[in-house]
Amino acid sequence: MGYQWNFDWLAGYLPILLKGISITVELIAVGAALGVSLGIACAWVRTLGPAWLRPFVSAYVELIRNTPFLIQLFFIFFGLPSLDLQLTALEAANLAMVVNLGAYSCEIIRAGIQATPRGQFEAGKSLAMTPFQTFRHVVLVPALQRIWPALASQIVIVMLGSSVVSQISVEDLTFAANFVQSRNFRAFETYAVATLTYLVLAIMLRKVLDGVGWLVFPRRKA
């Protein structure tokens, strides 16, 4: 095909793309930290928490896991103002990512908790720990260690999924790419650069999460 490739524009638009990358990184940093926290709380409810809360958490998890992230985002950004909950685009994107990752990580962490040997709970009880103390000091960290690779994969998936927040005008990497291609009319090259940037971000995020796992879970399997 007689197409002339052109990447001359790249240097001039680099600051815009870097700004977009920084927003994407911010989104996933907040999303991962709060989302996993929410996931831990929900996993606790579903395994050891009060029985009356469980149906609500189950409904939340099923609802989020069976609807597209884009719709969750639109519902939060466009729909919630009807309930007088007006969020900025960035807040809505953050909230949507936390809610989304919370539901997925709940299921992953729950599997980790359920794989805990019975004896661990009994040992905690025999040391006069309350069920919550047993969860907090005995069960939680090994459970997270067990499922850390799966959780890391899910965090990477959510990072890649965050590209749709550009649709509610959050100025992330995809938004930057949309802006750049509307200026340079080099749509294919621009999105190719953005795509490769996402690939690099995904590989780096994976490495960071492996590193976090290595730091947080020092006890190796015997």
Partner: peptide, 20 residues
């Protein structure tokens, strides 16, 4: 698996257009 589906959609959309 390491890139967003949205980017793949854009590349397919604008990539196919390169064929004129």
């Amino acid at each position: 698996q390491g890139t967003p589906l949205l980017m793949q959609l854009f590349l397919a959309f604008f990539g196919l257009a390169l064929f004129g």
